[in-house]
């Protein structure tokens, strides 16, 4: 969530230029939606409840959750208009997220 807020502050101008931000998690709760609305950012929060999409993307952290459940591996992808990955950020430590500045630069470089 901290990543999304940081991202939102940086990307709101890019949003106006027409970048779609899609946030995928197994359980996006009401709080996420309210926060996004409050920030007027037009994020789309989509629910990947059984982690089917995360699995297809190879982004599952097996038993990484607090109760030992599988959770998504945090990742940020920047896709161009043809749907091709132009920038990808993965970390081996879930505390670390890409710098929103780096994401914005990747978007602007498209």
């Amino acid at each position: 969530m901290a990543e999304l807020q940081g991202l939102g502050a940086e990307l709101s101008e890019a949003e106006k230029a027409g970048v779609e931000i899609v946030a995928v998690s197994p359980d996006p709760n009401e709080r996420s939606h309210k926060m996004a609305e409050g920030l007027h950012l037009g994020y789309r929060f989509v629910a990947d409840r059984d982690l089917a999409v995360a699995r297809r993307y190879g982004l599952v952290h097996a038993h990484g959750g607090p109760s030992g459940e599988d959770v998504p591996r945090p990742a940020t992808l920047v896709l161009d208009r043809d749907g091709v990955v132009r920038w990808l950020s993965l970390s081996d430590n879930f505390q670390v997220r890409p710098d929103p500045g780096d994401v914005l630069r990747a978007v602007r470089a498209l």
């Binding site: 990543e3 027409g18 970048v19």
Partner: peptide
């Protein structure tokens, strides 16, 4: 696709 670039963020929730 064909319309807008996408920033796709996978996060834990």
């Amino acid at each position: 696709r064909g319309k807008k670039p996408v920033v796709l963020v996978f996060y834990r929730g």
